[in-house]
Design a protein around this nucleic acid. Sequence first.
DNA 1: CAATAAGTGGACATCGTGTCCATTTGACGC
DNA 2: GCGTCAAATGGACACGATGTCCACTTATTG
Lengths: 190, 190
Amino acid sequence: MLGVMERADAARNRARILEAAGRLFAAEGAPNVTMDDIARAAGVGRGTLYRRYPDRAAIALALLDEHERALQEELLRGDPPLGPGAPPAARLAAFYAAMVRLLEDHAHLVLGAETGRSRFTTGAYGFWRAHVRSLLVAADAPDPDALVEPLLAPLAPEVYGFQRHDRGLTAEQIASALARLADGVLGTSR
Amino acid sequence: MLGVMERADAARNRARILEAAGRLFAAEGAPNVTMDDIARAAGVGRGTLYRRYPDRAAIALALLDEHERALQEELLRGDPPLGPGAPPAARLAAFYAAMVRLLEDHAHLVLGAETGRSRFTTGAYGFWRAHVRSLLVAADAPDPDALVEPLLAPLAPEVYGFQRHDRGLTAEQIASALARLADGVLGTSR
DNA sequence: CAATAAGTGGACATCGTGTCCATTTGACGC
DNA sequence: GCGTCAAATGGACACGATGTCCACTTATTG
């Protein structure tokens, strides 16, 4: 498929690993799952597991990949306000809403994948960053490079999880607060 | 001093531990320092170390304590715009500026203390949270509880560190972007 | 100068990580 | 079918950090 063939047993084990990891992440919470757990649950040796995925984050990332790709596609070519065509403030609010949905649906994965510093080094973060930055530029915001990270920071899994579970907020409350944030920074009133 | 006396050797060792930990954090970066390192550098056994500080975060917190207290005092009773008297947007911007200074001066400590989820469980976070929330209330912002965390999120040590070192921004750029954020959300234009 | 409770330090058990390599197994040409 | 060979496997291993436990030491108090 990609020039080089993948052996049948390799493909089978990849599937087993992802299936087992997804199940364990959902059941136990990503941070509580060890590489050993995954290997055992997948019926696979440690060596096999490490051959493909150097750490838990890589597995969670692989599981997350398709969802993130779908959203990225929509941002680039979907209908407004998520896709191009709407004013920046509206697009940012729509992006926030979509990310809230993603965090809500895949909290266990995201918490395993993008926690702490490693968050910034994933390809996905780079994409979100570029997107929000382009909205800032479109809105003529001064120093967009300094404003991007603050606007992305509320989407850190830890922050979302804290609001949602420790503070007892609903996904709607969070999304609407972020919409207000978007409007305050990029809105027409400025 | 506090009802129960602390034995002389205990006091001496506490001082040794804090001194050694501060030195190591600054030299090696907090995440790279093990409990063992600290015990050894302090000339103290593991047991002694664990007796007082259950983990690295507790030590960093103890080292940070006085600086955070000073800022908290200023927020409550200092001159405007940091202290009471100025309009909410200005006070929030001043708070951001003060936090940037704190992060800048004690990055190594903060990175050891408030990383990841544990950040939210420190007493200091509760204080910052209450302060920002009161500013939101004073500005008649809707649903202040949902807006607090997003406004505090950019101050997460990981975010600051990423902007400052990976992205190469200056402390001034960050502070001024946050000032704009403060004005966008709480400013008079809304 | 006891008596005693607080304090000490390092050995130990435990756990998770990541590496290494002898063995197995699937793919491919014949 | 079958031999060949590189890819793939899996579990043993070494390592590093954590946190606990307890026999011993030391400061304090009357």
